[in-house]
């Protein structure tokens, strides 16, 4: 399936949870926040929230800023 993550289209084998996507991309789940189709995914739901073809995901973290 194709999933758009931070504006880039990525290919994954379905089915996949948010947690599995984070693990596949080596992203530390405790330091980031995830938005799925403009809705926040709470950390407690990373394991249960499934991602499907065409979903749009934003993964953000804190960087330096003023």
């Amino acid at each position: 399936m194709d999933v758009k993550i931070n504006g880039e289209t990525r290919k994954f084998d379905a089915p996949l949870s948010v947690l599995e996507i984070l693990q596949a991309m080596n992203l530390p789940s405790q330091k980031i926040a995830v938005e799925l189709n403009l809705e926040i995914v709470p950390k407690s739901a990373y394991d249960s929230q499934m991602v499907v073809q065409g979903d749009q995901i934003e993964i953000v973290h804190f960087i330096g800023g003023g």
Binding site: I5, N6, G7, I32, V60, H61, I63, G64
Partner: peptide
């Protein structure tokens, strides 16, 4: 300290993080 919210670097997930 003030911080900004931005997309993570997908191409280099091991890049240093502010935290």
């Amino acid at each position: 300290v003030t911080v900004a919210v931005r997309r993570v670097n997908l191409s280099d997930p091991s890049a240093p993080m502010l935290v």
